[in-house]
Design a protein around this nucleic acid. Structure first.
Lengths: 120, 120
DNA sequence: ATAATACATGAATAGATGTTCATGTATTAA
DNA sequence: TTAATACATGAACATCTATTCATGTATTAT
């Protein structure tokens, strides 16, 4: 078979039953929204570089700045974004603030995506 | 331990060796760019709904329109986007055009993301 | 040939997103 | 207490993105 689909091509005027099958695959709008939020968090190159640093370490903002070559402000804004999505946690210690990734789903998706991109 | 990181907190003025370890985790800029492209493709709710239909079936545009409740134009634009990223293939048959997902990485990421979102 | 169907596409537009700039707060050092 | 360091945040701005609107092309039906 040229096209390795599990079912035949679906076109509504041909088979009404197929249409019903298709509709079962359609994800809910609310599911789509939540799913897109997760992927959106991983959709920016600088945010991905930031996440790659937080993946296995607690790191303070200043060190992120030095390592990423982004401005402190840009990093803080990105961290705020990730905080609002509950994807990172932070801990204040003296005048430092340590951030770490706090979502296993994102960690898993990041790693899987990386595997695919690196040798896919 | 309160924070289950694999290494100690990293802050540059405390330990230069730790900084070197951290830098090894930082992904390349080009890797970040390519990775973000993949996740960006999955970052829009309507596109996710569209992809959910193409995940296991070849479907023609008109049926996508009827099922998704989006305009034909919006769907065609999204399909063009996915085409340019080589994420879908298409096949013309008479006056119909059948689309199908053509990237296992995206398929895997979609499914994994869905699992996490649905019962995570 | 003419009309209708299926799909594509450029332009315009509204909204989202990421960065910078300026400034503010909290903690430590001098 | 004064200065410096570490970080946060609002506003402004430029860019990107998704949709709509109008229109175009190709195929089939009449």
């Amino acid at each position: 078979m040229l096209y390795s689909q599990t079912t035949a091509p679906i076109c509504q005027d041909e088979d009404a039953e197929q249409l019903a099958v298709l509709k079962k695959h359609l994800i809910e709008q609310s599911t789509a929204n939540r799913l897109s939020e997760v992927f959106k968090a991983l959709s920016d190159p600088n945010r991905l570089r930031l996440i790659s640093l937080l993946l296995e370490n607690e790191v303070c903002v200043h060190t992120l700045e030095a390592t990423l070559g982004m401005t402190q402000s840009a990093i803080s804004h990105q961290l705020r974004h990730l905080r609002q999505l509950n994807l990172v946690r932070f801990r204040k210690e003296g005048r430092h603030v340590y951030y770490a990734l706090d979502d296993e789903h994102v960690r898993d998706l990041f790693r899987q995506g990386l595997l695919h991109v690196e040798h896919g």
